[in-house]
């Protein structure tokens, strides 16, 4: 069974919510990502979302844009992401890993070839920001055949018709974008999130996780109470950026920095 499904079943039995941290591959340096991934898991991350850097990340706010730029400055690529996850799997066979990114690097590699490499690396899900259902057709089918979950976004602006369409195509979980805006924006509206999540639940049995705008234990808890889990990105990335700006280079320092943030959120979700 796909690790994402498995993980949500376990969480459900335990009555717990999923904590899904997001970091960018190769940010700020190639040797940082793997230790940080392990550290995130140690602190209680349920699923890891690995951002694949792209030159034109149109859905990202300034914090994550800069992370993409830092990673690209030393040539991080989709191939590197696949290699890295394969390494991660050498010592972790249980934690689901999702690649989140944009269509063009995958298109360049070739969709089918990408899927072969992703299977080999042990990737469980893919979230391609600029491949909405209309454009994802064939890739979605190929992913399905390979047993890799294709994760789709739903937004506050998604019409009822689209919510149904996405619910039909989506795998893994539904990623509900909590606000109109880019990643890292601050205008989270819990009442609106509740309405939308409740409605999505009437359309699908998939878990619904919420991302964008979650920045601490309190906001994570508030949103998790209404859903099945939270995706946390900009706060982690911004912490790493602070360290990088101070000239920090030791992978351990980065692991420690994100650890405390993730531990706080885990605690808020569980207690």
């Amino acid at each position: 069974m796909n690790r994402i499904k498995q993980r949500f079943e376990v969480l459900k039995q335990q009555g717990r919510k999923a904590l899904i941290p997001y970091i960018v591959l190769g940010d700020p340096a190639a040797d940082v990502t793997l230790p940080v991934m392990h550290a995130l898991v140690e602190q209680g991350a349920d699923i890891l979302e690995l951002g694949v850097p792209f030159s034109d990340p149109t859905a990202e706010g300034p914090v994550i844009q800069k992370a993409h730029e830092r990673a690209l400055a030393h040539g991080s690529s989709l191939r590197d992401a696949l290699t890295l996850v394969k390494q991660f799997r050498e010592t972790n066979a249980a934690t689901p890993v999702i690649l989140m990114g944009y269509a063009n690097p995958i298109e360049r590699l070739g969709y089918q070839h990408f899927i072969e490499l992703a299977l080999d690396a042990g990737i469980d899900g893919v979230l391609t920001v600029d491949l909405p259902p209309e454009e994802a057709g064939e890739f979605n089918q190929q992913l399905g055949e390979a047993g890799i979950e294709n994760i789709f976004l739903l937004a506050p602006t998604s019409s009822d018709k689209r919510q149904k369409m996405v619910a039909e195509m989506a795998g893994g979980f539904i990623y509900y974008v909590s606000l109109k805006g880019v990643t890292g924006a601050g205008n989270l509206d819990v009442v609106s999130v509740k309405q939308h999540v409740d409605h999505i639940r009437t359309l699908t049995d998939l878990p619904v996780c919420v991302g964008f705008g979650i920045k601490d234990g309190a906001s994570a808890r508030a949103v998790a109470d209404l859903s099945d889990g939270v995706v946390v990105g900009s706060v982690l990335v911004s912490k790493m950026a602070e360290l990088a700006a101070c000239g920090e280079a030791s992978p351990r320092a980065f692991s420690q920095a994100v650890s405390s943030l993730v531990a706080e959120m885990r605690d808020a979700l569980d207690n």
Partner: peptide, 10 residues
């Protein structure tokens, strides 16, 4: 085509 994030589709 229409390769944009979900929020813009509407």
């Amino acid at each position: 085509g229409r390769f944009v994030s979900e929020t813009l589709i509407y």
